[in-house]
């Protein structure tokens, strides 16, 4: 029993937790931006897959790592534009379009993978982002290794949270995005275009989701394989709710979920096969549902979430 407890005080556990959290942080921030503007983006799972492949393939074809990130972001933004075009000016059901985008993006990704790599049986590897310890800070015990000995992409994830939080709460643009998710009529009456704001938010959010996907291939597994997103996108949708649509709280949620995940892997080793491992795999999800029930019951969601806005409608 003490062994199970001691896991929490090992640096490797926290390093893993932060690494597992990183893609979730990107994608959660992306989803949060979309939802704050009033658009539920269920395309997230597919957009992450597309980003994972686009980033990896850019590097595999000889591009450098940051170019890969940029290509992943652009791919995500393109799928975001598709999603936004259907849901914002055309006002179609956000559920149906989102699931459609996920199916389309996932299938297109697999199709392209087979098209460009018809011969391979085992997924080829790329040279991924390397850990970049930050001088002095990385020397702090446990915390230093967990937070300051990660890859640049993980640092970028944390910077993204700060930028999203500042952007939403401190800038006129963020104000407009939040207002579009609360009451589009208020935005229109102040002379701004709800359509432009929502399209922009969905494209930006989708770009972040794709970078989250790219993290998996470029900073974690080093190669692309099918089903690698494995429900991470759906978890991010829950994390947005868990975070009550606030970037800081959503960050805490992402780290919490990742910690559960890292913990169950280690717990499997400690218990040494006595308990079926599937039970441990289940653990983070069960705990997430529990946390969601406790936290999200009181959450105030954006009032115009999933409500299409058509100008001049009677």
């Amino acid at each position: 029993m003490t062994e199970a407890f001691e896991i929490l005080f090992t640096a490797s556990f926290w390093v893993a937790a932060i690494r597992i959290a990183s893609p979730l942080i990107f994608a959660t921030m992306g989803e949060l931006i979309c939802e704050r503007a009033g658009v539920l983006n269920l395309g997230i799972e597919g957009i992450m897959a597309a980003g994972a492949f686009a980033g990896w393939f850019t590097v595999y074809s000889g591009g450098d790592l940051w170019t890969g990130v940029a290509v992943a972001a652009a791919t995500g933004a393109a799928f975001g534009l598709l999603h936004a075009t259907l849901t914002v000016p055309l006002g179609l059901s956000q559920h149906v379009v989102g699931i459609g985008v996920t199916l389309l993006a996932t299938s297109l990704t697999y199709f392209t993978y087979r098209l460009v790599l018809p011969e391979v049986t085992s997924p080829p590897k790329i040279e991924p982002f390397q850990p970049l310890p930050i001088p002095y800070l990385s020397d702090i015990p446990i915390l230093g290794q967990a937070l300051f000995s990660q890859t640049p992409l993980t640092y970028l994830a944390f910077v993204t949270v700060a930028v999203v939080a500042w952007g939403l709460y401190r800038t006129p643009l963020g104000l407009a995005v939040r207002a579009a998710g609360e009451n589009p009529a208020a935005v229109e009456s102040q002379g701004l275009s709800v359509t432009a704001i929502r399209i922009g938010a969905v494209m930006t959010g989708s770009a972040l989701m794709a970078i989250g996907g790219a993290f998996l291939t470029m900073s974690a597994f080093n190669s692309f394989f099918f089903e690698m997103i494995n429900g991470r996108g759906w978890i991010c949708i829950a994390l947005v709710v868990f975070g009550s649509w606030r970037p800081g709280k959503a960050l805490v949620g992402a780290i919490l979920f990742a910690a559960f995940d890292a913990y169950q892997i280690r717990l499997q080793q400690v218990t040494g096969g006595v308990v079926p491992y599937q039970l441990f795999l289940m653990l983070p999800y069960v705990l997430s549902i529990l946390a969601l029930v406790l936290v999200a019951r009181r959450a105030t969601y954006p009032k115009a979430l999933m409500v299409p806005y058509q100008k001049g409608e009677r």
């Binding site: 407009a176 939040r178 609360e182 009451n183 102040q190 954006p302």
Partner: peptide, 16 residues
């Protein structure tokens, strides 16, 4: 045409 969960200031300054 006000956003209920936002402040008076935010509603007035929106778009200005």
């Amino acid at each position: 045409t006000l956003a209920d969960n936002m402040t008076v200031l935010e509603n007035i300054a929106l778009g200005t």
